[in-house]
């Protein structure tokens, strides 16, 4: 009986590790790409290696006189599980999708100033998420 318990624990650990590592981002990428509308697809940012309270940062060279959309999706389909904060090349805050108590599922940024921008992502009450970047001239 002891052996059974040991094996059960091992299997439980292996299965839980496997399921933790497998955050299926593809359906979220599809959903988030669909939110882009008339914006042209550019990049996918996966937010799948952090927990609630942690953050991950990506960057992208934004071009002046171009509109960008950052759409956000999470594995629970809550539309509010991923937060993004956008900073300009001088690390000045540009915007966040959490504004006045509301969490927006996307940000459109009408960029006038060319430079490298930083996107800091965090998650709340979800396991993982993705953000898809699109552009429009």
């Amino acid at each position: 009986m002891r052996l059974v318990k040991k094996i059960a624990v091992i299997v439980g650990v292996v299965v839980s590790i496997a399921s933790y590592a497998q955050c299926n981002t593809e359906p979220m990428v599809q959903k988030c790409s669909g939110k882009l509308g008339d914006f042209t697809f550019l990049k996918v940012y996966k937010i799948d290696k952090i927990k609630t309270g942690e953050s991950v940062e990506f960057s992208y060279v934004f071009s002046g006189n171009t509109s960008y959309m950052l759409s956000l999706c999470d594995d629970k389909g809550t539309e509010s599980g991923v937060e993004v904060t956008l900073y300009d090349s001088n690390r000045k805050l540009v915007s966040t999708n959490k504004l006045n108590g509301k969490v927006y599922p996307a940000i459109t940024y009408n960029c006038k100033s060319t430079g490298i921008y930083y996107m800091t992502y965090s998650i709340a009450d979800v396991t993982c998420g993705v953000s898809v970047l699109g552009f429009k001239k």
């Binding site: 002046g64 956008l86 300009d88 090349s89 001088n90 000045k92 540009v94 915007s95 999708n97 504004l99 927006y104 996307a106 940000i107 459109t108 940024y109 009408n110 960029c111 006038k112 100033s113 060319t114 430079g115």
Partner: peptide, 23 residues
Amino acid sequence: TVYAEPTMVEENGQLVVKDNSKT
């Protein structure tokens, strides 16, 4: 780049951020 504070507006339920800086 000549910096100016960005402005945020809600348009058709979407968050739109307008960059007021220029390059």
